[in-house]
């Protein structure tokens, strides 16, 4: 393999890893919320961009250090989630077939946030870039990689690992998974179902926000990334199996590599076509997904 090809190969791998871990984060956030409260959050892409834009305001306009800004942004998601949960989401917990009501509701939120972003940030800039977390460059073989992106990758992977540990070993995580599996039985065993609902809504959104701010730290972004992210996260959730965290991580990684590889050889539109095609096939022939619980 010649040097140039090796560089392309390595850069595809590194981009794929970073994109894949961010896709996985967002998809895990969506799948946790869908698995527990049946809410297909179509606004995930807008939340993702909201996190990125808040990070941009904090770092570029206010001059806060990116690391502190990232923590603040993820912190902001908690009152936001609980507020939304209290005003809107809570009303439908006992409605049968509530997933379609939630879906339309989140499309409404999407439209509101789209309007707000276009009216505010859209007027200020087309392209947004955050200052890097850390400076410097590391050479992996012949390929120079910004330390900043390596840091983002490490953070994304450690958040995913922490999430796994939380869901598997901590009692709150176990309560969430119990409600995933059987709401009635979990309630009979003394799990506070409603508290677990609001907790998983907040947790899912916090993970989406984390994905957004990490993406913004690694790459420059514009407002159109919101809709692409929404559709991609849904595709990952459906293919991985709605409610399956492991499925979301694996498929998210696969999608990241696909995006990186297809974008180098063809165009991002082709990558989008391939996701959507895969999603349609899964929807039609195996709606429970590849890694169904």
């Amino acid at each position: 393999m010649s040097d140039a090809n090796l560089i392309i190969f390595l850069s595809t791998i590194s981009t794929g890893l970073i994109l894949g871990s961010i896709f996985a984060l967002v998809a895990v956030g969506v799948t946790i919320v869908y698995g527990s409260i049946w809410m297909p959050n179509a606004a995930n892409g807008q939340f993702f961009v909201l996190a990125a834009l808040l990070g941009w305001t904090m770092t570029v306009s206010w001059g806060i250090h990116p690391a502190i800004a990232a923590i603040l942004v993820i912190g902001v998601s908690v009152p936001l989630s609980y507020g939304l949960e209290y005003i809107l989401v809570r009303r439908f917990y006992d409605v049968p077939n509530r997933n379609i009501s939630y879906f339309v509701l989140s499309l409404g939120i999407t439209q509101i946030l789209t309007g707000i972003f276009a009216a505010t940030y859209g007027r200020w800039s087309d392209q947004f870039q955050l200052p890097p977390l850390v400076s410097g460059i590391t050479f992996i073989g012949p390929l120079p990689v910004a330390n900043n992106r390596l840091m983002v990758l490490a953070l994304a992977l450690s958040i995913l690992a922490a999430l796994f540990a939380l869901l598997r070993y901590h009692r709150y995580g176990r309560a969430i998974r119990a409600v995933f599996q059987n709401r009635d039985a979990a309630a009979l065993r003394g799990v506070n179902v409603k508290a677990s609902y609001s907790l998983s809504f907040a947790l899912g959104n916090a993970v989406i926000f984390a994905g957004g701010i990490l993406f913004a730290l690694a790459y420059s972004f514009d407002l159109t990334v919101a809709w692409t992210m929404s559709i991609t996260a849904f595709a990952i959730m459906i293919i991985g199996g709605p409610g399956s965290v492991l499925g979301a991580v694996i498929v998210g990684m696969v999608f990241g590599f696909t995006q990186a590889a297809v974008s180098t050889v063809a165009s991002p539109t082709i990558a989008a076509f391939s996701y959507l095609g895969a999603m349609l096939l899964i929807l039609l022939f195996k709606p429970s997904g590849l890694f169904a619980r």
Binding site: I100, I231, A272, M279, L284
Partner: peptide, 24 residues
């Protein structure tokens, strides 16, 4: 055609995907 197999949210999601594909 997907409406023959899918109901409710799944059909709506499927139609959303189709709409996105058509727009693309």
């Amino acid at each position: 055609l997907p409406s023959l197999r899918l109901k409710g949210f799944y059909f709506t999601l499927c139609s959303l995907v189709i709409q996105t594909v058509v727009t693309l």
